[in-house]
Computed example of a mutant assay.
Amino acid sequence: MSKTVYQADHSGHYLGPVEADESPLEPGVYLLPAGAVEAPPPGEWPDDKWPRWTGAAWALVNRPQQTEQPSPAAKLAAFLADNPDVQALIEEQQQ
Protein backbone atom coordinates (compact mmCIF):
# COMPACT_ATOMS: atom_id res chain seq x y z
CA MET A 1 0.00 0.00 0.00
CA SER A 2 1.21 3.55 -0.66
CA LYS A 3 0.02 7.14 -0.39
CA THR A 4 0.80 10.35 -2.21
CA VAL A 5 3.26 12.77 -0.57
CA TYR A 6 4.93 15.90 -1.95
CA GLN A 7 8.59 16.07 -2.97
CA ALA A 8 10.77 19.14 -2.48
CA ASP A 9 14.38 19.65 -3.63
CA HIS A 10 17.31 20.32 -1.29
CA SER A 11 16.30 23.98 -0.95
CA GLY A 12 12.62 23.22 -0.30
CA HIS A 13 11.21 24.05 -3.75
CA TYR A 14 8.29 21.87 -4.81
CA LEU A 15 9.08 19.21 -7.42
CA GLY A 16 5.87 17.20 -7.56
CA PRO A 17 3.88 14.36 -6.02
CA VAL A 18 5.56 11.02 -5.22
CA GLU A 19 4.40 7.78 -3.63
CA ALA A 20 5.40 6.81 -0.08
CA ASP A 21 5.31 3.08 0.63
CA GLU A 22 3.91 1.63 3.82
CA SER A 23 6.51 0.25 6.21
CA PRO A 24 6.60 -3.55 6.16
CA LEU A 25 7.46 -3.51 9.88
CA GLU A 26 4.95 -0.88 11.06
CA PRO A 27 1.51 -1.03 9.43
CA GLY A 28 0.04 2.46 9.02
CA VAL A 29 3.49 4.11 8.99
CA TYR A 30 4.71 5.40 5.63
CA LEU A 31 8.32 5.67 4.51
CA LEU A 32 8.74 9.18 3.10
CA PRO A 33 11.35 9.74 0.39
CA ALA A 34 14.05 12.27 1.32
CA GLY A 35 12.69 15.81 1.07
CA ALA A 36 9.05 14.69 0.89
CA VAL A 37 6.30 15.98 3.16
CA GLU A 38 2.73 14.89 3.75
CA ALA A 39 1.21 18.40 3.62
CA PRO A 40 -0.01 19.22 0.11
CA PRO A 41 1.23 22.43 -1.55
CA PRO A 42 -1.27 25.12 -2.57
CA GLY A 43 -3.66 23.96 -5.27
CA GLU A 44 -2.76 26.82 -7.62
CA TRP A 45 -0.20 29.61 -7.74
CA PRO A 46 0.76 32.40 -10.17
CA ASP A 47 3.35 31.70 -12.87
CA ASP A 48 5.88 33.99 -11.19
CA LYS A 49 5.67 32.11 -7.86
CA TRP A 50 6.83 28.67 -6.71
CA PRO A 51 5.86 26.72 -3.58
CA ARG A 52 8.71 26.24 -1.11
CA TRP A 53 8.57 24.10 2.04
CA THR A 54 9.76 26.19 5.00
CA GLY A 55 10.00 23.26 7.39
CA ALA A 56 6.54 23.96 8.77
CA ALA A 57 4.36 25.00 5.81
CA TRP A 58 4.37 25.80 2.10
CA ALA A 59 5.15 29.42 1.19
CA LEU A 60 4.99 30.98 -2.26
CA VAL A 61 8.34 32.48 -3.25
CA ASN A 62 9.43 34.26 -6.41
CA ARG A 63 10.26 31.88 -9.26
CA PRO A 64 13.80 32.43 -10.58
CA GLN A 65 13.86 34.18 -13.94
CA GLN A 66 15.68 32.30 -16.67
CA THR A 67 17.79 34.46 -18.90
CA GLU A 68 18.84 33.50 -22.37
CA GLN A 69 22.42 32.26 -22.43
CA PRO A 70 24.75 33.23 -25.28
CA SER A 71 25.76 30.46 -27.66
CA PRO A 72 29.18 28.81 -27.23
CA ALA A 73 30.32 30.49 -30.47
CA ALA A 74 29.30 33.91 -29.14
CA LYS A 75 31.14 33.22 -25.86
CA LEU A 76 34.28 32.24 -27.80
CA ALA A 77 34.07 35.32 -30.02
CA ALA A 78 33.75 37.56 -26.95
CA PHE A 79 36.70 35.81 -25.29
CA LEU A 80 38.90 36.22 -28.37
CA ALA A 81 37.90 39.88 -28.69
CA ASP A 82 38.94 40.42 -25.05
CA ASN A 83 42.17 38.42 -25.49
CA PRO A 84 43.82 39.44 -28.78
CA ASP A 85 47.03 37.61 -27.81
CA VAL A 86 45.14 34.30 -27.85
CA GLN A 87 43.65 35.18 -31.23
CA ALA A 88 47.18 35.94 -32.53
CA LEU A 89 48.45 32.55 -31.26
CA ILE A 90 45.61 30.76 -33.01
CA GLU A 91 46.29 32.58 -36.28
CA GLU A 92 50.01 31.85 -35.93
CA GLN A 93 49.33 28.12 -35.52
CA GLN A 94 47.12 28.05 -38.60
CA GLN A 95 49.91 29.35 -40.87
Rank of each mutant, 00 (worst) to 15 (best):
M1H: 13
M1L: 15
K3V: 13
K3E: 12
T4Y: 15
V5L: 03
Q7I: 05
Q7F: 10
Q7M: 07
D9H: 09
H10V: 14
S11M: 15
G12P: 02
L15D: 08
L15Q: 02
P17H: 02
E19M: 14
E19C: 05
S23G: 07
S23T: 08
S23Y: 04
P24W: 11
L25A: 12
L25Q: 09
L25V: 03
P27N: 04
G28Q: 02
V29L: 15
Y30V: 05
Y30N: 01
L31P: 00
L31R: 00
L32N: 07
P33A: 08
P33L: 08
A34I: 11
G35V: 04
G35L: 05
G35A: 07
A36P: 01
E38T: 15
A39W: 02
A39S: 15
P40N: 10
P40G: 05
P41M: 03
G43L: 06
E44T: 11
W45S: 07
K49A: 03
W50E: 00
P51R: 00
P51W: 00
R52T: 02
W53S: 00
W53E: 00
T54R: 01
G55R: 03
G55F: 10
A56R: 13
A56V: 13
A57H: 01
A57M: 07
A57R: 05
A57P: 03
A59S: 11
A59V: 04
A59P: 02
L60S: 09
V61I: 10
V61D: 03
V61P: 00
N62T: 05
R63S: 12
P64E: 05
Q65Y: 14
Q66V: 13
Q66K: 14
Q66E: 13
T67I: 04
T67H: 13
T67F: 11
T67W: 08
E68H: 10
E68K: 02
E68I: 08
E68F: 13
Q69I: 12
P70G: 01
S71A: 10
P72K: 05
P72C: 12
A73D: 10
A73E: 07
A73C: 03
A73Q: 02
A74C: 05
K75N: 09
L76Y: 14
L76Q: 14
A77M: 06
A78T: 11
A78C: 11
F79C: 14
F79P: 06
L80P: 09
A81W: 01
A81H: 06
N83P: 12
P84F: 14
D85I: 04
V86P: 01
V86D: 03
Q87S: 04
L89A: 14
L89K: 10
L89D: 13
I90E: 11
I90N: 11
I90Q: 13
E91T: 06
E92P: 02
E92F: 08
E92W: 12
E92V: 00
Q95A: 12
